[in-house]
């Protein structure tokens, strides 16, 4: 994975990687991707993917109204609030 690709993925992942970090990441991810490339050798034609390791039934429950977190609790850990909402920089 070259430097440009690391930067592109970093932007997708919302990481502001520095130059040194980008270079180290390029080396390390390249080695890891070389290692995982061994999977290519396996024939998986027609093999169903596993998304969930244990077969359970569908999890249904009644669509009943239950109390949710009070506003005060939901905001308790937020870096910035006005007491009713999360505060973020202007986007418009």
């Amino acid at each position: 994975m070259d430097l440009a690709e690391v930067k592109r993925i970093g932007a997708l992942a919302r990481l502001d990687l520095g130059e040194e970090e980008t270079a180290a990441m390029s080396d390390q991810l390249t080695r890891i991707l070389d290692y995982v490339a061994q999977l290519e050798a396996l024939d998986t034609t027609g093999v169903e993917p596993t998304t969930h390791p244990v077969t359970l039934g569908e999890a249904f429950r009644d669509d009943a109204v239950r109390p949710s977190l009070p506003t005060e609790a939901a905001l308790a850990n937020a870096p910035a609030t006005d007491g009713a909402s999360f505060i973020v920089p202007r986007i418009l």
Binding site: A13, L15, L17, M25
Partner: peptide, 18 residues
């Protein structure tokens, strides 16, 4: 995210995003 996450967490986020 850049400041908050350590090197291994960033590495895995990068690999997974890729």
């Amino acid at each position: 995210r850049e400041e908050g996450f350590g090197a291994e967490v960033k590495r895995r986020i990068m690999l997974g995003t890729f």
